[in-house]
Amino acid sequence: MTDGTAGNGVAERPMRLSVKKTWKMYIGGAFVRSESGHTLTTGAEAGGAAATGAQSQEVICRGSRKDVRDAVKAALGAQPSWRGKSAYLRGQILYRLAEVMESRREELEERLLRGGAEAKAATREVDTAIDRVVTFAGWSDKYQSLLASSNPVVGPHFGFSVPEPVGVVGIVAPSRPSLLGLVGAVCPVVVSGNTAVVLVSEADPITALTLAECFATSDFPGGVVNLLTGLGAELIEPLVRHKGVRALDLWGVEDERARQLEAFAADSVKRVTRRIYEEIDWYDAAASGLGFIEPFLETKTVWHPMGV
C-alpha cells in the first residue's frame, strides 16, 4: 500500500532499508576512496577475524602506493603548523579526542564486539583507550621538562638541549588490540608535534576507521593523523621508502621482512623503532610512559655566549 496503511486503516510500520556506510580512508583531514578505485571485503582478502558471517562483511578501500604518497604529502603539509602549535594546545586537542571517544564509546565497543571481542574485554579496551588518550594529552607540555637539560659546559657559554619532533612518522599499527594498540601507537607520536601516516590493522580496519571519525571531529587539523587501509604487503614498502618520512614505528614486523625494510629505511637514514605488539602489556601504565614518546624526538643542543 502506498499510503502506508494495511488497507483496513490500521497503520503499519513501513519497510525501511538501512543506509550503509561507505568506509573510506582518512587522509589530510578528509575521508577519501583509494585513488586506485580498488576495494577489499573485510574477512575475505584481508583474511582477518572480522568476517564471521555475511552481514559483518564490509567493503573497505584497498590503499595504493599513490595513496601512501598522498598521505605523506598531507602529513608533511601539516607539519609546520602542528609542531608550531603550543604544547598546551596540542594537549587540549588530544583531550578533545578523549571527549569525543567517550561520547562515541558505544560505537567503538560495538566495533570491537564485531571484531570478535568479548563484551567485558571490549568495555575494558575502550575504557583504557580513552584513558590512554587522556594520559598522552597530559604529556604534551611535560616530556620537555624531563628530557631537556641545561648543560654545565666549561667556558662562557650557556648550553641547553631540548627535544624536538622528528617530522613525519610512518606507523605500521599493531594488529591487536585493534583500538588500544592504535591509540597507544599514534598518540605518543603526534603529541610532540610529529604528524603520522598510519597503516591500520588489516585484521580490524573498521575499528580504526571509526576512530578516524573521532579524529576528524576533535579539532585535529587535517593531515596530522592519516589512516590508510589495505594490504600491508603492498603499502609498507612505499611508506618505508618515502624520503619525506623521517621515522618509522613498525609494530609486528617479523625479522625477515624487517631486514629488508630497515635496509630501505637506511637509504634516507630514518629512525626505526620496531616492536612486537604481543609483548606489550597495553593495559599497564608503562605503555603510556615517556618511553613511547622519546623514540620520535630529536635533541637540539644550543650554545649561547654570556657577557658583552
Binding site: G91, Y95, G138, S140, K142
Partner: peptide, 8 residues
C-alpha cells in the same frame, strides 16, 4: 589542565 596531566 597542566597539573591534571601530572597526576598519573
Amino acid at each position: 589542565f597542566y597539573y591534571a596531566g601530572w597526576a598519573d
